[in-house]
Structure formats: structure tokens, C-alpha cells
Design a protein around this nucleic acid. Sequence first.
DNA 1: CTAAATACGACTAAAAATATCGGGTATATC
DNA 2: GATATACCCGATATTTTTAGTCGTATTTAG
Lengths: 132, 132
Amino acid sequence: MLKLTRKLEYSLIALSHMQHKEENELSTTKEIAVKFAIPQEILAKTLQQLAKLEIVHAVQGPHGGYKVIESLDNLSFLDFIEKMEGPQGLVECTTDSDCSLMDVCNIRQPIKIINKNLKTMFSNISLSEITQ
Amino acid sequence: MLKLTRKLEYSLIALSHMQHKEENELSTTKEIAVKFAIPQEILAKTLQQLAKLEIVHAVQGPHGGYKVIESLDNLSFLDFIEKMEGPQGLVECTTDSDCSLMDVCNIRQPIKIINKNLKTMFSNISLSEITQ
DNA sequence: CTAAATACGACTAAAAATATCGGGTATATC
DNA sequence: GATATACCCGATATTTTTAGTCGTATTTAG
């Protein structure tokens, strides 16, 4: 119910790895996949997504690879998760707002509050706190 | 990544419904299923599990049904979730503690802390806050 | 005895997450 | 400019989890 997806896990591991390198030093997919025993193809896709989201910068060609593009201080864990996986919420109606039970549902308000607190908590964590 | 399962959703809806009845008044599976448009068979199973966990009391036979067994003030949302769905954690190693990456993983500590805060938050919510 | 209700295990279906495949594009180096 | 390395990306396959169904048994009021 509250487990990180592999994609998020792999992303965080990769980001942490890159964060610990010298400025401008690149990391390849293979290098990271081997070091952390992650299926290479999946990690490749994950890194491509991170590149598309401009969280990492990609350099193509031989001696290419990835590096973190910006300080991760300014990206919250919540934003990161939602960029990677789309809008998050404890229940359908917190993201979609179209549920047939809308008018008869008896737990909507309390769940909404918990959901808000949860998101607040995640938005107060910076990615760099995790990848540092 | 942090969505409630249907089972939890149905449970909360049912508990809330029962909580609003007179002391000792029973609710049947059918009654609740119809009112909230929940598949009856599934709700039945869910209520049976709640009965087994002694969160509700079941009365068999005609005019039977369920009622909340104890004050839900003393049951935390975390305990409720873990009773229903087993141990929860953001990552494998928070519940299982056997991950092959154990010694090479670079995000274990920070994730562990977030996990702890999350669980603390959920343990500070009483079920009755949701079902009231 | 019958009907209404819970109890429960086995099975199926649907959805989501995870992983794989096959072909593309950019570029450093020889 | 040929080649090898590394990123790019859509489609598909596999696995796991979640959701839902079915059939049968048990309890008990009337």
C-alpha cells in the first residue's frame, strides 16, 4: 500500500550514485546496473525518463553517460514521485475526482485530510536528503 | 505507490456505516453492499476478515449481521492496515531485512527514516477519526 | 423444515508492475 | 567514413498483485 515502485528505487539509487561523483564525471547505465545488480534494460529506460524530465543530463556517443543536471535540493520527494509516476493519492477521488459514490461516500473527508498530510510530508523532503 | 487497496476502502466504508448506527443494531453485508455499490461477495469476505480480527462482531442466522465490536479510538490506522494487509514498508528491507543489495545499497538509511516518519504519522491516526 | 444470514476455500479475471526485444540515433575515435 | 559505444524509444511479453466469482458449509430465527 505504500511501497516504492522499482522504478523509483532504481532512480534513487542511480541518482545517489551519480551525486557522489565529481562534478561533470559521467556514469553509464551499465556501470550502475552492474554495481547495484539492476536489470540493465530497465535501468536504461529509467535513466532515459530521468533525462526527459531534466533531472539528469545525458551525453550520447562513446564515453557518454549521465550526470545529475541540477541541485536536487530544490526538488521535493513528492514532485519527484509525481513526475515519475503521475499524480498520487490514497483514493481515486483525490486525483481524479470522478467516483460514482461521490454523494454517498462516508469516508471522503477524513481520507482527504490524511492524504493532504501525507503529501505535505513528502513535499517537505528534498531529493538530496535521500541521495546525499 | 500510496493508494489504499479496495479491501481497506471497503472496510473503512463499512465500519463508518456501522459506527453511525445505534448500539447493538446490526448491519448485513447486503445492506452495505447495496448502499455503497460494493460487490457483495467481496464485501462479505472483507467483513469476515474484520470479524476474525475482532474489529467487528458477527451474528449468524436470520436477522444476523455485523456490528463494531469495540471503540475504534484505540486502534490506530497503522495497526488496522497491518492487521488487514500485513507489514508495510516503503522498501523490502524495512519489513523483510533480506535484500541482496544490503551492503552496497546507497539509499537504505534515508529511506528508513522516511519510512519511520510515515509509520509514525499513520500510528497517530485513530480509526475512529476516519469512521466517525 | 426453511429461509436468511455468516464462514470459507478454491478458482478466475483483470490490472498493474516488471522485464525483454528490436530497431533507432548521436558521436568519439581510428 | 567505418566502427564501436552509448543513449533513445515504442511494442510486447511475463510476472505479480489485486479484485472478483463460485460453490458449499454452518448457524439460527421463525
